[in-house]
Design a binder for these strands. Structure first.
Length: 200
DNA sequence: GTGCAGATACACT
DNA sequence: GTGTATCTGCACG
């Protein structure tokens, strides 16, 4: 049925191989569990201009340069957190952004965290919303999803019926790389938006 | 459903 | 100082 835990070597691959494999998996944090329906892969230093690791290690992206299977939480736009899972062995900085999912457990908790009145399908529809629904913030940066006894658990889940891929969302460079993956037809997948430069 | 505007603080140049 | 892997609310259809 797919209730087994994902092992660390699952993440010991390039992020664009891990990303589609992550779809349909269940990420559990405390009382809340989410079935991943949309993810984006981010590549290695010097190879992917859209990746936070493009210019090498910094204090912020250190987790992605650490061992695989750890949670990288970063703060952006002055008010949002987003969550990634690190890939490849220590020293190789890349990861997979968790873009959207379906809350399958802890619905009331997730709803309480979100605050705003939204439908179930919007609870974790978008990376910042997912982070809020799961309760991720700075304090969860570096959490291990593969330790087996940690507060973060990743289950096998069920294989999705159909996977699609396309350009990444919201990035100003490297948007042409088709490293966004989602479950075809799933209502919780966020609508595609291209990056728009902010006016002043 | 679409399309804006504005909010906000941090990391990095 | 500059740009951001975004969301919400409002307008409109």
């Amino acid at each position: 049925m797919g209730s087994g835990l994902l092992k660390r070597d699952f993440f010991d691959r390039p992020s664009h191989e891990v990303a589609p494999d992550l779809l349909g998996r269940i990420l559990v944090h405390g009382p809340v569990a989410v079935r991943l329906t949309e993810v984006e892969a981010y590549g290695l230093p010097g190879e992917d201009p859209a990746s936070h690791t493009f210019r090498g290690p910094t204090p912020r992206n250190a987790v992605m340069f650490g061992p695989p299977g750890h949670l990288y939480v970063y703060f952006t736009y002055g008010m949002h957190f987003c969550a990634n899972l690190s890939c490849l062995p220590e020293g190789m900085g890349c990861g997979v952004l968790l873009r959207a999912g379906e809350i399958v457990s802890g619905l009331s908790q997730a709803r309480a965290r979100r605050g705003v009145a939204v439908s179930d399908r919007d609870l974790a529809r978008g990376p910042a919303r997912l982070a809020v629904a799961m309760g991720f913030d700075r304090a969860h940066n570096g959490l291990d999803a593969c330790s087996g006894d940690g507060e973060l658990v990743l289950l096998e889940g069920e294989s999705p019926s159909a996977i699609r891929s396309g350009p990444r969302t919201g990035v100003s460079t490297g948007a042409d790389t088709p490293w966004r993956f989602w479950i075809d037809g799933d209502p919780t997948v966020s609508p595609y938006r291209r990056h728009v430069a902010r006016r002043r």
